[in-house]
Amino acid sequence: MNKPKVAFFDFACCEGCQLQVANLGEQLLDILGVIDVVEFREVMSEKWNKEYDVAIIEGSITTPHAVDRIKKIRKRSKVLIAYGSCATIGGINGMKNNFELDEIREHVYPDNAKHFPTIPTMAVDQVVKVDYYVNGCPIYPPEFLKVIKAVLKGIPYAVPDKAVCAECKLNENVCMYEKGVICLGPVTKAGCNSWCINNGNICYGCRGVVTNPQEQAQNDIMVKYKISLDLMLNKMNMYNKCREIDKDE
């Protein structure tokens, strides 16, 4: 059997999601037994000049050059996976869109801003078609394994479209609102097994907003706990600012 040719590509991101692969430990060798990794800049210098069976895209699109590059990769790839929050929803890079681009550029590089062409941060599917999504900042390794299996079998993977609260309740965590702090669990897609809340922190919304957020219920929560809309929006804009941009396709 011919092993599928798999390539990893990074755009603007911290590359932590790629490292999550290395953190699989010896399990990684099992995966490498069924796929053929042909490009993975973080660990190898080899290059591949033919078609990719699977392209795994990390990072968000933030420069004109990146737009061209992702379009070229899409053309050469049978299956394209958006991998990690930066790729699936724009993620933390989207915070840049809270500012005027010229202003933030000059703030960080006062002397040579012109050397840093930048465009509003976009998720990968705001530029090209995406076939599979692995959400999260960072990605949740058990979910990555599920997606890889689905890709290899050629069947779709449905990202859970219920709220993080559904998993959080099963984990018997005390609700963060009861502790007096805001949590984005009620509007955020599940699938991470409420990772952050299990560890005493809040949900920051890194997996993206569910397709049909229960707006009325969220409104009730905000009234009950006296939370201002501004504070809520400010929280949402940490990972989910890019949702304001329309999808390209």
């Binding site: 932590g16 933030t62 933390i92 933030i104 703030h107 960080v108 930048t118 960072p138 920051y204």
Partner: peptide, 26 residues
């Protein structure tokens, strides 16, 4: 590759800084 972290942090709560800046490097 500019990601403008220092610019993006302006206006955020100091309690969010570690969450955001941890994302500078995986």
């Amino acid at each position: 590759a500019p990601r403008f972290f220092e610019g993006m942090l302006r206006g955020r709560s100091i309690f969010e800084a570690q969450h955001i800046t941890s994302r500078i490097c995986g």
